[in-house]
Design a protein around this nucleic acid. Structure first.
Length: 467
DNA sequence: AGTGCAGTTGACTTT
DNA sequence: TAAAGTCAACTGCAC
């Protein structure tokens, strides 16, 4: 495996995208296959092709990936310079390399998204080069319920989302029960480039126009606007990693840098495998294991539970989740992990109450029963906190705590309170506040509208809320 | 009919 | 898309 954030479920998705691209390019070239694939060290592969055929120029998308892709691209740039091969990298998603100030960034993003799509070429000439086979798998993480890759599936999802699923978007995205169908599910297609952000934004804007002009579709206007806003937040976070690549390894704000550095193997594994004794947390983790996807709010809750209630290091937490997300996108991921772990110093701390979320998002317990079969017979009254059941009920419902299902690994109210205290102490000092101010200037968004409660909230840390 | 009071709601603050 | 606490305004009800 190339790096600690990579997993076979991601590779399988990418592989399916490549296979479909291969066939599509083949059609343009009038052959069964159109893609020439090479595996191995990028510089060595390029050098070999250059030796045998001569490379006139390199064209690539400008990737904002992890440190591994960054180092690879640096090596390729270096090689291309040495060999006198022009290397063109095309900026993606409105992200700007070498950005100095966030001023005007939103307008730049708007303009990028308005530019016309590049048309498909009428035909293609494929060089007569041999192609390596695609590796079958890069690990044993099968994830059979994961989304399948390929542009046609991405387009079908885009159509179904904008034509009808978007109606339940605003209402359905918070609960893990409704989110799988209410959310667009386009994220992995955007991550792997099977769909372009620009084509998704443009399709969304057409739907917004339709909803604005046709009363029949007026009801979905809010959802569509919320969706477009999230697409722009997506670029915002990728931009953050582009501008501050250290956030993959170092906390943005040093206030807690020397705290929370040790993994507690028992607590961490219980969280990582969905055995915390909190049914809603465990159901979310197990759904993620099984499907490779979870809605945003529940991702945030899992992260907060690990980093606040269990006080585990954000990077270990982030790596585990990265491997489980089929749609792992480094820029979004590390920005979000740091925010939800309280490492940025420029966002409000969100310490979720996992029992409250359980009641709010899964009132009947249907979601828990689906993913935590140990609790299948426990009625709604006890399912959120089965450890409160009297022993005779535990026996009656076939779920003895500590035997059939674990007891809670921490007392969530106590550990939440402790985390809150530590956070506010760490960020209260004048030095910490000064650093927050600097980070805010450089890496927060510039909203076109004034924040609603600017004066009151400026006192606090929570100026900026992406959601 | 007006008063007292428990309980609710919503805006806002604190952690 | 935090949660919990505070407080004032409001509501429904008993008397």
């Amino acid at each position: 495996m190339a790096s600690a954030d990579a997993s076979n479920r991601q590779w399988r998705f990418a592989r399916e995208c490549l296979q479909e691209l291969d066939r599509a390019l083949g059609r343009l070239a009038g052959r069964p296959r159109g893609l020439i694939l090479r595996t191995g060290d990028a510089v060595r592969v390029l050098e070999q092709i250059h030796q045998t055929h001569g490379i006139a120029a390199l064209w690539a998308h400008q990737e904002v990936g992890n440190d591994w892709t960054f180092q690879r691209d640096r090596a390729v740039r270096c090689w291309a310079r040495e060999r006198g091969v022009p290397f063109h990298e095309i900026p993606q998603d409105g992200v700007i390399r070498g950005l100095q100030s966030r001023e005007g960034w939103r307008d730049h993003w708007d303009a990028e998204m308005r530019r016309p799509l590049v048309p498909e070429p009428p035909e293609l000439q494929v060089a007569p080069l041999p192609s390596d086979p695609l590796p079958e798998s890069v690990g044993d993480d099968a994830c059979p319920l994961a989304q399948r890759g390929g542009r046609s599936r991405g387009l079908a999802l885009l159509r179904s989302f904008l034509s009808h699923r978007v109606r339940s978007y605003a209402r359905g995205l918070s609960s893990p029960l409704t989110a799988p169908s209410a959310c667009s599910r386009l994220s992995p297609y955007l991550t792997y480039g099977a769909l372009s952000l620009r084509e998704v934004v443009q399709a969304t804007r057409r739907a917004i126009e339709q909803a604005s002009s046709d009363p029949k579709f007026a009801g979905r206007l809010r959802s569509l606007q919320a969706f477009e806003a999230r697409l722009s937040w997506r670029s915002h976070f990728v931009q953050r990693l582009e501008s501050l690549p250290s956030i993959e390894f170092e906390p943005m704000h040093p206030a807690l840098a020397n705290d929370r550095t040790q993994v507690d193997p028992a607590l961490f594994e219980a969280w990582a495998q969905g055995r915390t004794g909190y049914p809603f947390v465990d159901a979310c983790m197990r759904m993620l294991h099984a499907t490779g996807w979870l809605n945003f709010r529940m991702r945030a809750m899992l992260t907060a539970f690990a980093c606040y209630h269990l006080w585990q290091p954000w990077r270990a937490v982030g790596l585990h989740l990265a491997r489980l997300f089929v749609d792992y996108e480094p820029g979004i991921h590390w920005s979000q992990i740091q925010m939800q772990a309280g490492c940025t110093g420029i966002s409000a701390f969100r310490i979720y109450n996992v029992v409250k979320q359980s009641h709010d998002q899964d009132p009947t317990g249907a979601f828990i029963r689906r993913w935590v079969p140990e609790l299948a017979r426990v009625p709604a009254a006890w399912i959120h906190e089965p450890y409160r059941m009297p022993p005779e009920l535990q026996r009656q419902y076939g779920c003895v705590i500590g035997v059939d299902y674990p007891a809670p690994i921490v007392a969530h109210e106590l550990t939440a309170r402790a985390a809150r205290q530590k956070l506010f102490e760490a960020y209260r000092t004048p030095e910490a506040k000064a650093i927050s101010e600097q980070l805010l200037q450089r890496h927060s968004s510039r909203s076109r509208r004034e924040p609603r409660h600017a004066p009151a909230r400026a006192q606090q840390l929570g100026l900026f809320d992406p959601s």
